[in-house]
Design a protein around this nucleic acid. Structure first.
Length: 292
DNA sequence: CATGAGCGG
């Protein structure tokens, strides 16, 4: 007598004993492209321990996906999910609301967000150049001599009456008759927004950074004496001998501006420690004066 | 001993 073949399916009682997840058939998803209705069929146990079939229908808003997403959708499932039907498996996947990410495009932006807004204010002048928008006064703009005359020559009238809108190279130049087709010249270092931070230091390197300070001057030293003393090192653009405003008495130190920084450097090397009158001179690079 | 003055917005 042949033994009846054992049923390959576990009995209902066994299924219960195995625990809920064990025996549940996988969920089935079906999507109708025409109606946009997704049907999800899944099996669960309700509170009474009864196995129930749950059919849910969703009206799906069909969205366009990116090309790379579309390609990913063609991938076959693998590993533990190899046997799953297409689409997300509700037993291990939750479709939630769209999550938006804020992308940071530069490190500076990131730092600005993290730093205390007040922290980055300290030591900064709240000033914006009318010519190049740099953080210096218009009168100190490194491009004052090149950019502004150019703007004025392009548009002499409008530039005079400027004052409504803040006029930079972008907004001041296109005011005239040719504004639509007019090409605004932007010097190379200022293209693409420029680098407002680095540029002022570079510009300073031209004249201001060629300033030396001489201390330990005797009180009867005059500007003309300094001129004689430093002239051999190179062309001097300015000499300032600090004096008391009312008495005119020398304060014993002076600033010498050279045209070329190398000359200033040689002057420091040559004159520092030099005996002048009854004193030994001290010469160093000058620091930029206090209020700029 | 010691870091000018002036121009603006």
């Amino acid at each position: 007598m042949p033994v009846p073949e054992a049923d390959t399916k576990p009995s209902w009682a066994e299924q219960v004993e195995f625990g809920e997840d064990e025996a549940l058939p996988p969920a089935i998803e079906d999507f109708d492209d025409d109606t946009g209705v997704k049907t999800v069929t899944e099996y669960k146990y309700n509170e009474d321990g009864k196995k129930v079939k749950l059919v849910r229908k969703y009206k799906i808003e069909v969205k366009k996906v990116s090309k790379s997403t579309a390609i990913r959708k063609t991938w076959k499932k693998y590993g533990a999910a190899a046997g799953d039907p297409p689409g997300p498996n509700p037993s291990n996947t939750i479709i939630s609301e769209e999550t938006f990410m804020q992308f940071v495009h530069s490190k500076e932006q990131l730092l600005e967000q993290e730093e205390d807004p007040l922290a980055k204010m300290k030591g900064q002048k709240m000033v914006s150049c009318r010519i190049c928008k740099g953080d210096h006064w218009t009168t100190r703009c490194p491009y004052k001599d090149s950019l502004q005359p150019l703007q004025e020559s392009l548009d002499p009238e409008k530039n005079k009456t400027e004052g409504g809108e803040a006029g930079g190279p972008a907004s001041a130049a296109p005011g005239g008759p040719k504004r639509e087709g007019g090409v605004k010249y932007v010097i190379p270092s200022m293209r693409d927004g420029g680098n407002k931070r680095g540029e002022s230091m570079v510009a300073r390197g031209k004249d201001e950074a060629a300033t030396i300070r001489v201390t330990n001057l005797s009180e009867d030293t005059r500007e003309s004496d300094l001129q004689e003393l430093f002239r051999p090192f190179g062309a001097i653009s300015r000499i300032y001998l600090a004096k008391d405003k009312v008495t005119g008495q020398s304060k014993g130190f002076a600033f010498i501006n050279f045209h070329r920084r190398e000359d200033a450097a040689r002057a420091i090397a040559g004159v520092s420690g030099f005996g002048y009158d009854h004193l030994i001179l001290n010469v160093e690079w000058a620091k930029p004066s206090g209020n700029q």
